[in-house]
Simulated scan of single mutants.
Amino acid sequence: MSRKIAFLASETEIASAALAELSTRYDNVAPEAADVIVALGGDGFMLHVLHTTQELPAPVYGMNCGTVGFLMNEYVADGLIERLIAAEEEVINPLAMRAECTDGSVFEALAINEVSLLRAGPQAAKLQISVDGRVRLDELVCDGALVATPAGSTAYNYSAHGPILPIGSDVLALTAMSAFRPRRWRGALLPKAAVVRFDVLQADKRPVMADADSRSVRDVVAVEIRSNDAIQHRILFDPGHGLEERLIREQFV
């Protein structure tokens, strides 16, 4: 690996200071000219960088200047070139969301972690769930539901009591938030190739919004979700600290 590095930082004070330090110690090139992109921030910024650089060939190495930092490596300014050379690569695919709205418009977005549907009013949402064109649940009454990738299974999905999925398992998690009917529905594990469709019942009375990695759209009537294998996000981790290890470790905390 050559030493052409592009440093990108969030707007926090810590990340800005890290950017100044690293830019002084190492050459900083444009992302288009880089062999590797170093993202300085938290998990939210890492997702932002992955989305905005997905057309570039360079992998992304995150250094934690935020809070949780599940997708990040420890921030250490010394020995960065050596760490990048030794880093292990994980490849993940995003979810593609296609949301139809009450006004007839269509909103499309990609999600590395999850696509979620959330009630947007005081009443619970009513959702019909289909998998590969077959209705699997006639009516789910809930605060919301989501489809998560293995990489995103420890985020919102885990908070909603969904399962942690090993990287490379070719499985998606379908998880409900505060399911009322069916009572305490536990969700489902689906093949990665599955196409999941949510149809919003009584959309005028029970409005629902959809969100793909913090890109949101309101007043949806139907949302279709599928894995997009044509897009590959390459993420670098220090040896022994890759996503596989982190996902296993998280289950024994």
Rank of each mutant, 00 (worst) to 15 (best):
R246H: 06
A111Y: 11
L95A: 07
A96P: 01
D219V: 00
H161E: 04
S105A: 05
A179T: 01
A151H: 04
T154F: 06
V115F: 05
K192D: 15
L117E: 04
E55F: 05
Y26V: 13
I14N: 10
N64V: 07
A194N: 07
I235K: 02
L8K: 04
E224R: 03
G133F: 12
N64D: 04
L127K: 06
R181W: 00
I37F: 02
C101D: 02
E74A: 10
L201N: 01
M63G: 03
S23N: 07
A18V: 02
L56D: 07
R226W: 09
R206I: 10
T149R: 08
L40P: 09
L56F: 06
L22D: 09
Q251I: 00
L22H: 10
G121I: 02
K4Q: 14
Y156F: 04
V131T: 00
G168L: 14
P57R: 13
L117Y: 06
A58S: 07
A17K: 15
G133P: 12
S116Q: 14
D170F: 06
I167P: 11
L56I: 04
M72C: 05
T24M: 04
T53K: 14
G240E: 13
S10T: 11
G79S: 10
R246V: 05
D238W: 01
V29L: 11
N93Y: 01
I5C: 11
V221N: 00
F252I: 09
A212D: 05
L56R: 07
I167Y: 09
F70K: 03
R226S: 14
E88K: 13
C65Y: 04
P57W: 12
H233T: 07
R246G: 05
E108G: 01
G144F: 08
M209H: 00
S169M: 04
V76S: 14
R3G: 03
S130K: 05
R3A: 00
A151R: 07
V220W: 00
I164R: 14
R215P: 00
Y75K: 14
G187N: 13
T24Y: 02
V171N: 12
L8D: 01
N64L: 08
I81D: 14
V220A: 01
G42I: 05
A96C: 02
T12M: 10
P166N: 13
F70A: 05
V29S: 12
E100I: 00
L50T: 01
M209T: 03
L80V: 13
L127P: 03
V220G: 02
L71E: 08
A120C: 09
